[in-house]
Design a protein around this nucleic acid. Sequence first.
DNA 1: TCTCAGATTAGATATATTCCAAATAGTTCA
DNA 2: TGAACTATTTGGAATATATCTAATCTGAGA
Lengths: 141, 141
Amino acid sequence: MDGEAIKRSLEERGLRCTPQRYAVMAFLMEQNSHPTAAETFEAVNRVDPRSSRATTYNNLRDLVKAGLVREVAVEGRAARYDAQGVRHHHFICDRCGEVEDVDWYEVRKPASRALGKRYVRECEVIFRGLCARCARRRSSR
Amino acid sequence: MDGEAIKRSLEERGLRCTPQRYAVMAFLMEQNSHPTAAETFEAVNRVDPRSSRATTYNNLRDLVKAGLVREVAVEGRAARYDAQGVRHHHFICDRCGEVEDVDWYEVRKPASRALGKRYVRECEVIFRGLCARCARRRSSR
DNA sequence: TCTCAGATTAGATATATTCCAAATAGTTCA
DNA sequence: TGAACTATTTGGAATATATCTAATCTGAGA
């Protein structure tokens, strides 16, 4: 997605395309490491120091509300964000805590008895175990 | 699980059964609402005001490390805990944020290509959508 | 009972996030 | 163009969450 496309997708959802907001969106789109708010703030200001901490938080909140960014469900103190178009599952390493992406695939839903009157929009999987690096270290000892 | 059983399971993992630790464990076991550390602290002290905030945090950390309690993966700032013996998936309501349990069932793993050299111990599903209450409110308007 | 590693404590500190009220910058429209 | 309106940004204060510290205490084995 190029600059114009980002601008359009912001405006489609009633958000002005400000330099600060654009920078947050563009940064998140090029990352696949699920940055925290603090990392986003730092990265955005390294390029062009025009954004305040509060603005970064405001923009993250607004982008999530607009559906352009999602907050990743992981344990841990700081929220992590993800603006990649393609949906994916997550793998969390028991040992080093790294969060990695796993290609999306549809997951079988449980018996409807278990879901009751809930409406399920999506099923995300969190895989847990050892990441490639930790698995290697573990087995070589 | 009764009191003796809790005591035994703590000691099996090398943790002393102190009143404070016992209280945290017993409280978490009887909840299915994934309490936060603050809620745990408050509940435990409502019954018997002998536990400090730091101790509650220490005990939660120790119990997680010992494998008796697990930290639930959800968005949001405060960590949530769960000491139920039976493993389960989670449902998070898009609208009200409520986290509910869904009976455990095994999930198909993706093609091994997608997992690479990772070792997968478990696959937890996070369902998202509308909880029964929110689904009802939504459709009746 | 004595001993001491493990556990607890209050309070300080660190980290993450939100709030606030004032200033600024897009947008609309006359 | 520029007045008026509103969304956005800002720094700093406030709040929420979590961890650290150093002193003290306690429970379980000898």
